[in-house]
């Protein structure tokens, strides 16, 4: 599903004019199907507000722009939110805090049951098993456990399983790696990569971690004060050094290395992934320029 936002604006607390905050201001953005899309920007830049529009948690006011997600017109009051939400999965920060059911099975099945009132029990079992296996957990061993007795990493996986169980085509994740240790983080991101090559076609990830963005995303949008300041591939975005500094953002490690090398007179090409950087560097060595 292609996502197109046109002149999208949003103001919090519109009724109480005194405390209203303009969170989005004329946002124009297109996210293609198949993108691994990164959204960055410092706190309060409007990125969370934007992604919450994508599954109708925040509604588009008809006069404040357009938003289309696939065939869904979000500005339309009669938009079928339930179907939309089954197609656009959303994982919030610390998703493990949303677990509530008595067993892991019940919790993962929750979304499935609420999207699909007359789904058969055998279908539910099939889909839940699929989702739990996809997030890298042992279905038989974990399905009857209480979600509250799992470890932090397992809880988060179960929570993600509860979102992907409805086989969303678009998966939106708000700061998904927060609070995970380095190993957990890497495993988690590999899980996202795996998902991206399955039924999830588009992944949108909001993060403060520039290394994640440069390593995994093919496109990045930078939000600043409710507007889009930069958009493009990680390479393009982080190439504009002054702008990035001005926006108060960090550089990914690879970009910093490239910059440092450039200052020493070594120009390294390639993209900003670790692999791309290493390939470019070894190529330089082969050419005898190092």
């Amino acid at each position: 599903m292609q996502i197109i936002a046109k002149n999208l604006s949003f103001t919090y607390g519109k009724q109480t004019k005194a405390v209203s905050v303009k969170a989005l201001n004329n946002v124009n953005l297109t996210i293609e199907e198949g993108d691994f899309f990164g959204i960055i920007g410092h706190t309060g830049s409007g990125k969370s507000t934007f992604v919450q529009h994508l599954n109708g948690l925040i509604r588009v006011n008809g006069k404040e722009g357009e938003l289309r997600v696939g065939e869904f017109d979000l500005a339309d009051k009669k938009c079928d939110l339930k179907t939309l939400r089954s197609k656009v999965g959303m994982v919030f920060q610390y998703p493990e805090y949303q677990l509530f059911a008595e067993t892991v099975f019940e919790d993962v099945a929750f979304g499935l049951k609420s999207f699909n009132k007359d789904i058969s029990q055998s279908e539910i079992e099939l889909r839940v098993a699929e989702a739990i296996t996809t997030v890298g957990l042992n279905y038989q061993r974990i399905k009857d456990k209480s979600p509250f007795e799992l470890s932090g990493g397992q809880k988060r996986r179960v929570a993600i399983a509860g979102v992907i169980v409805s086989r969303p085509e678009v998966l939106v994740l708000d700061e998904p790696a927060a609070g995970l240790d380095p190993v957990g983080k890497r495993e988690f991101l590999n899980l996202l990569k795996r998902l991206h090559s399955s039924f999830v076609k588009t992944i949108i990830i909001v993060s403060h971690d520039m290394n994640i963005i440069s390593e995994y995303c093919n496109k990045v949008a930078v939000f600043n004060r409710g507007e889009i300041a930069l958009v493009g591939t990680p390479q393009e975005v982080f190439a504009d050094q002054n702008k990035i500094k001005e926006l108060g953002l960090e550089f990914p490690l690879t970009a910093r290395l490239k910059l440092a090398l450039k200052n020493k007179g070594v120009e390294v090409g390639g993209d900003l992934t670790v692999e791309g950087f290493v390939t470019a560097l070894s190529k330089l060595k082969e050419e005898g320029k190092l």
């Binding site: 805090y97 949303q98 979102v163």
Partner: peptide, 10 residues
């Protein structure tokens, strides 16, 4: 936050 998360799950 929790309401939003559960709404997102239908």
């Amino acid at each position: 936050r929790i309401i939003k998360a559960q709404k997102a799950r239908g």
